[in-house]
Design a protein around this nucleic acid. Structure first.
Lengths: 237, 237
DNA sequence: ACAAAAGTGTTGGCCTTACACCCATGT
DNA sequence: ACATGGGTGTAAGGCCAACACTTTTGT
């Protein structure tokens, strides 16, 4: 190793590197966001995204899984890097560069397993409290990204239980896009992808007739990760 | 400020935070990538992306502009955050989290102004050398992103001189997507956006007939940043 | 006159949208 | 029997892809 290079490295300022997770969930009716209470300043407790520090021997991806696991005890969750936020004074305590990830989980999976170490709560996207630091911008960026992804890929499934009905899926898409969709066109488009497998079982209790359950064809889903649908109203204008 | 919070901050490991730029250019025929020679290990000089350290009082965005300026003397360049790379040992000297940005510039603008402080060279995308660290993955991700963006937005203009012809623009899109496009459909789609303004002047020398120059309508371009076109061959399949 | 690139229109198929009625079941 | 949500078909319009000839001008 050349000395001048080492000197260059030595001369640099080191920074705190953190990670924040925008955790979306769906309860069958509304799109929700999971927030935790963090006390940074005296007395004032602010709702914030779940986050943590990136550890010395940890990649960003593993940090994101670990942090999600600490809060939810869930593994194998859809997690995707969103954006890195690095304004010098975004954290008033000390400069912290934060890598934001967004996660999609099924609220039901989560509910019982909630960790006792955190005061956490699901918020409706319509009624978000004021958030810590720049977490509000992170959430805004995440919802945009979720809308885009959901219009391109069958990513929405990640927010539902393994077995789900078409009307559930439609409600989810309506919640993501904040719009109503035509059920005939919706189911036609979905089924035309051939990514859904119809099960014999029907949903009980919610409606009198009962809707058939479907599950996703994992094989095809992974292959087909491009060229999906376009649900966005007005996307062709 | 609460003492326990401060202690938590104190206990964390600080990291080097760097920034790397994937700089695309177009010379009228091919899509190019601007690389610099960096010597990290004895004797071995490797081509790498242009990069630098994020300074203490600098946001990531300003760092990306500064670093691009240092190499090219260009300002007001299209720059967009791509992804953050943070594997623990991606930099063998010391752990460095690197935020990658991609930039689009016009090769002609650049050519004369090239800084003497760097040994830099434009490489054809077909003939990239082996790159430093994980810069190869960064480039891969950037080209994918460029393709997507170019299919959605008139972003390609950023790679051309202010005045350009439709055939030039088509060559650019063909270079980005690595495919041939039908010139009738291409020009119809482009013109239908109403974002191009036809100039009286014609291009001389390249062809006998000469093609009309166009420039972009900056106003509309900025407004219209959604809902553009879809050029990707087979994107509707 | 000819070579080389620029420019321009039409058609068929497909995908999207809009729209309304019957079905199955629990009460 | 009726109320509630589930499930399905069709027709019209717009968008995209495929395709070939004429124009201009430098040599």
């Amino acid at each position: 190793m050349r000395i001048d290079i080492l000197e260059q490295y030595q001369a640099q300022t080191r920074c705190l590197v953190a990670l924040d997770s925008i955790i979306f969930g769906f309860d069958g009716e509304e799109l929700k966001l999971l927030l935790v209470k963090r006390g940074i300043e005296d007395e004032t407790h602010t709702w914030s995204l779940m986050g943590g520090w990136v550890q010395p021997e940890e990649s960003l991806e593993s940090a994101s899984s670990r942090i999600l696991y600490e809060l939810t005890s869930l593994t194998d969750i859809y997690l995707e890097q969103l954006h890195t936020f690095g304004s010098p004074h975004r954290d008033p305590v000390e400069r912290t560069v934060s890598v934001a990830y967004f996660a999609l989980i099924n609220v039901e999976d989560y509910d019982h397993k909630i960790s006792k170490n955190f005061e956490a709560h699901w918020f409706s996207m319509q009624e978000l409290p004021k958030l810590l630091f720049d977490h509000g911008s992170m959430v805004e960026m995440a919802i945009e990204n979720l809308r885009y992804k959901a219009s391109q890929h069958p990513i929405g499934f990640e927010l539902l239980p393994e077995k789900f009905t078409i009307p559930q899926l439609q409600k989810l898409y309506e919640a993501i896009f904040g719009t109503e969709l035509d059920k005939r066109n919706f189911s036609r488009k979905l089924l035309s992808t051939n990514l859904l497998i119809k099960l014999a079982e029907k949903q009980k209790g919610y409606s009198k007739k009962g809707a058939y359950f479907y599950r996703i064809d994992e094989e095809k889903y992974k292959k087909h990760f491009n060229n999906f649908l376009n649900f966005l109203p007005g996307s062709t204008s």
